[in-house]
Amino acid sequence: MNGIFSRNEAFVALIILGLVLIIGSINPNFFTLGTLYDLLRSSVVMGIFGVGVLMVLVSGGTDISFTAIAAFCTYVTSRYLNSIGFEGSVLVAFLISGAIGVLLGLINAILISSFKLPTLIVTLGTGNMFRGFMLAFIGTKIVTVLPPGMIRFSRTEFFPVTTLIGGTNGLSAAVFVLLAVVPVTWYILNYTMLGRGIYAIGGDRVAAERAGLNINVIQFFIYCYVGFLAGIAGIVHSSLVRTANPFDLVGTELSVIAAVVLGGARITGGHGTILGAILGVFLVIIINNSLIMMGVPSYWQSAVIGMIIILGTSITALQSKRESRVSIVDNQ
């Protein structure tokens, strides 16, 4: 039972593999490099969000304010850079947006660790607050002409290929942002005291406290880091759609959480891996972006996604149940 197939990630990977084979057999056009580029590009924003959500879930919390933070950061950053006529690199946009994200995450952290409030309630409140503040005081007008740096970033592509229809398709530069975020977070979670502390407080808060971990410091780090990631994801999102729309993103938080749970993270905390979260995101993205290819009518799209989420999570849940039974037997 301790082989590779006892892990949740393996199940999700198998589902992905099966799904890809089914889609490809229905529509062979699926097996092109262009498809892979498109799917990767679509995964970036949800992937960055997913990494943040994973960290929160592992610590035993739930954050639903990250989409509001992302919309806030990117809207404010785009408006600000446009107002000063900034024409430089997109890195500046990432820095400003990330910094605003850290500040908003700090508000979450203060409320959560100082007042010991439940994370779901706090982030439900702050998410609405950030969004309302932005719409009321900063504006509702959609920015359709982004700062030039962000447009250049969205146009940057690598390894172009010719598509079936005669156009070109390349690997979006945005994919490399996800490729940077994933290993950094993976390292933090697995190879630092801080990261192990996050697993510890999610597994058993009291035990973690007695073991001498400073829970406040850990929680401050988690929510600031998630805010930072949200800020980054916001800029990527705006660049990719080439508009900064204050009404965007909010409303997608539950599908991100569903994707991460699909990848084996547990809502109760203590369990979950970066690999699982990313695989969960890929699965949802592949489903979302392949139903037209499979010829599934619009009416059925949400139903199919719902069924796969239930199927996927019940497999992982059964798996964890069996695991705990095995460990009891082992102990006896």
Binding site: T32, T35, I165, L240, V241, I292, P297, S298, Q301
Partner: peptide, 27 residues
Amino acid sequence: ESPLECYDDQTRAYENMKELLRTYPNL
């Protein structure tokens, strides 16, 4: 067969379009 849905979301419309281009090379 039935119109595709984009939920008034620009990203969704973009992704629908990408997929249409993949699925129907003669579009």
